[in-house]
Design a binder for these strands. Sequence first.
DNA 1: CGCCAGGCTGTAA
DNA 2: TTACAGCATGGC
Length: 291
Amino acid sequence: MQSLKLDSNSLKFSLDLSFKCGQIFFWEKNDDIWTGILSGKNVCIKQDGDTIFWSGAEEKDIILFLGLDQNIPEILKDIKSSIIAYRKTNDEIFDIAVNFGSGLRLFRQDPYECLISFICSANSNIPTIGKRITLLSKMFGLEVSDSVFSFPLPEILGEAEEDEIRQCSTGYRAPYLKKTACFITKNPDFLKSIEKLPYIEAKESLMQLSGVGPKVADCILLFAYGKYEAVPVDVWIKKIIIGHYSQFLDEGKMSYNEMGNFCRRYFGKYAGYAQQYMYTARNEISGLIKD
DNA sequence: CGCCAGGCTGTAA
DNA sequence: TTACAGCATGGC
């Protein structure tokens, strides 16, 4: 295994927390080792204190995937100064979230895998989403090594029968998966073209895909494209906004876009990062805010 | 049994 | 433009 020492900006990095925070689903942990596939190769990653060990990839790709180049102290400083500028005080709930989520890092995952994963996420929960992805990979993935299956390729998923996709516990999401896989097969450069678009246009573009609404689009933009102004508002974040930030929002201005716009004004250009700290600490926060 | 979970699509006003 | 029924699955 290769290894690298975390630098001073990354000393609190937590591989476990980052994998488990609901941003990625197609990796598994066995005996302290996370295994998955990057660029078609089996990759193992583990953390021991301030050292990351891995195999199956080049160092620069591991650093990019895990987001180890991101300067977290700088990002948090930016968010906190934006909060101060907005409300003239600190935000005790956000501080609690950052404390709880210490070591959190937004990965840079493959856009296609992120897209399919979050179509599966609709109206569901994290363990169930993971099971769906695993079932899909076993049914439609390529066996890259002994009983290790790749993420299902678009050309295979697009040709699959809707019933087969339903057998992977995907329910009513099955036709969305098939349609979107077909679209990606016919438009192989589509996901690449999203990169250079500004946030609003990138989001509108993604929302043309079947099964992709505003929330799923924001997840893809944040978790795969590193567009930190994307703020996925799920039921937990909505609860937190209503319970802790409603003083800053007009009654009746609780639409998806209004909540996201508020977060961007309040947290600044890294609002999506702030959102992920809040989401990660959702259980701790929910007991501290209005119901 | 009912309620909820990283919501979206289609329809109606 | 917004409102809302319907939708599959699994955990509690």
